[in-house]
């Protein structure tokens, strides 16, 4: 990792591209959009049913809440299996790799620049559609938060297979508490995720790429040339 204090200008060098052109490119293939929205719907259902089971509302009988929570969670896990396979076979996983370059600039923007009316310092590129802060957030989500949720969830669900272990009721309580705590964190993430869409041109502008799949990104002349010759279908405008 490059340390910004030793190479103060590297952010600018790497993250912006003066001779790039802004082109609208298909950046979220159909599977990724399906994945995103299924996941979004699933998380909503899981949060609604989870809150119900924990007594925060009684809009749904416990039995139905358990049934939905279990089935939706299992379906989401299956989707994650497919998504993980897809991420690694297509190489898309690389966009989620955390990187230090530009991180402080993006963080500074959200903490300070946005109030000054500054422009977002990150320029999306074909291979790096996530800014460094997003990449860090998503990588933490995928490697720490989600595994904690589905790991504790699976342990919770399969209690009957390990209930004969010593102190099983205590460990069940630990599992349940972890599940509940991390679920609240995911709920907070959802709020944050939606809120950040309001920083930018408009909320609709933020949501549109995940619906249509296309987004305006910076293309290097080489990328532009390659796409216009070999992958014309990706170049929308």
């Amino acid at each position: 990792m490059t340390d910004a204090t030793h190479a103060p200008n590297i952010d600018n060098l790497v993250e912006t591209c003066p001779n790039c052109s802004q082109r609208e490119v298909l950046i979220y293939p159909r599977f990724e959009r399906l994945w995103h929205w299924s996941q979004a719907a699933s998380i909503m259902i899981l949060m609604f049913t989870g809150l119900g089971m924990n007594g925060f509302h009684d809009l749904m009988p416990f039995e139905l809440a358990v049934r939905l929570h279990t089935l939706v969670a299992l379906a989401l896990l299956l989707l994650w299996v497919f998504a993980t396979f897809w991420l690694f076979t297509t190489g898309t996983y690389k966009v989620f790799l955390p990187r230090m370059m530009g991180l402080t600039r993006v963080a500074r923007f959200y903490a300070y620049g946005v109030f000054k009316g500054e422009h977002h310092p990150y320029q999306k590129s074909l291979t790096q559609r996530l800014n460094p802060l997003q990449a860090l957030a998503y990588s933490m989500l995928k490697t720490v938060i989600f595994p904690l949720v589905w790991g504790s969830g699976l342990l919770y669900l399969t209690y009957n297979f390990w209930e004969t272990l010593p102190n099983a009721p205590f460990w069940l309580e630990v599992v349940a508490n972890v599940h509940l705590a991390v679920a609240w964190f995911v709920a907070g993430f959802v709020i944050l995720h939606i809120y950040l869409l309001t920083i930018g041109h408009s909320f609709r502008e933020g949501v549109r790429p995940m619906i249509k799949g296309t987004e305006t990104v910076a293309l290097t002349p080489e990328q532009e040339a390659y796409l216009s010759r070999h992958e014309t279908w990706r170049l929308v405008k």
Binding site: F109, F115, H119, G200, G206
Partner: peptide
């Protein structure tokens, strides 16, 4: 953002 009128601050997301 509202106080600093930076709510329309440019950016991507």
């Amino acid at each position: 953002r509202i106080i600093t009128r930076g709510a329309k601050g440019d950016g991507h997301d």
